[in-house]
Design a protein around this nucleic acid. Sequence first.
RNA 1: GGUGGGGUGGCUGAGUGGUCGAAAGCGGCGGUCUUGAAAACCGUUGAGUGUAACAGCUCCCAGGGUUCGAAUCCCUGCCCCACCGCCA
Length: 425
Amino acid sequence: MLDPKFIRTAPEDTQKALALKGYELDLQTLIQLDDERKAIQVKTENLQQERNTRSKGIGKAKAAGEDIAPLLKEVDDLKQQLSEAEGQLHEVQAKLERILSEIPNIPADEVPAGSDEEDNVEIRRWGEPREFDFDIKDHVDLGASLNGLDFDTASKLTGSRFSVMHGGVARLHRALTQYMLNTHVGEHGYDEVYVPYVVNRESLYGTGQLPKFEDDLFKLNDEREFYLIPTAEVPVTNILRNEIVRDDSVLPIKFACHTPCFRSEAGSHGRDTRGMIRQHQFEKVELVQFVKPQNSDAALVELTGHAEAILESLGLPYRTVILCGGDLGFSAAKTFDIEVWVPSQEKYREISSCSSFRDFQARRMKARFKNPETGKPELLHTVNGSGLAVGRTLIAVLENYQQADGSVIIPEVLRPYMGGVERIS
RNA sequence: GGUGGGGUGGCUGAGUGGUCGAAAGCGGCGGUCUUGAAAACCGUUGAGUGUAACAGCUCCCAGGGUUCGAAUCCCUGCCCCACCGCCA
């Protein structure tokens, strides 16, 4: 959520900034509603004050043994007026809340203009795509010939956009997960955390998936309104929901977390239907940082580097782009996407998305820290990113390390996790 | 699943329906004392909204209700604890 005060004091700036994201802010409605709110709120609070002082007076009179009947009479219609005013206030507040909760975050100054991914700007590139002297296979064919990937059985078990893995491929998938988690915990200073894969509405509201993006989620058929997590970001970030970090020396708080992720992929019919690029269920190692406001830009750079380090140690060529305004997510102020080279597509494909949310999520969540300089609670900044999407990393390893005979060389750093195996065939 | 007991400030924990945003203790912060520290003593110490600053208003798990007045009474939900049953 944006700071309502900021919108109020700089409405045109807000509108302009949001336009970069392709969002049209209806200022007139918003301002009108806010004025209405203010008027009703003043009225309500005056009535409340009246009630409080009168009630206190009645209490005193009663204690003094006076006759309170006339006092009660005086206060008779106050109650009616007050409940009416409170009703109106709640209504207008709910309306405002709803509107505010659906306004996206403002892009950072350095975010390039643009409408979609075509306008994202490459900021660096690492590694050289390998030259193959044979006809390469994509991961689907490779997986099939290795008896390692089976989409037909998955669709029998469930439906489309799921996968079954076997043998060396399944193990490679697990090895990648372990390697990523160990690296971030052991070398990049993250605390490992394990969280629920099912969350409530409040958590999804906190990180910004709700109320606007319900369609992207799998909802459980349960009166408790539970959802499968679309990313570990949701449970991990919400760890600090409604919390005040009293001791600022524990900041930054850095969590690394491996979870499955569940996405309904509503609206992406026909995109990436082949293979395991876009699945309803996939594994991800997520990095989440809670930082002091002045540190979030640096934290985003650091965190992006942690994700890139995984690709470099795996020897996978990648490029990093900064998302343009139109491609930025709802909650993000700035996002770096890391894209890995996928030989069969002769393209770089997203494998990690690292974002700073500034105080947008923190405000929704009321995640704060006590600033020792002011002695006051202030909103934290949140930063997160994939480090990395495991399924897509598996694709990249299979395709980039494939050999003419259809076997796949295991990158050096993964071999300890593969029982020393150097190649799967 | 059954039965019983609970959810109050950073923590522990009081709180006959009226001056309670809330005793007390601990912890934190500031001070006195001390070469320094400890101890002792004194003061201070929840969040939000609002204001130039006050004032005012809201918040004692959440949402409803009763009442002139609710932390306190009633209803619903959520969560926690104990015991029993079942269970990976």
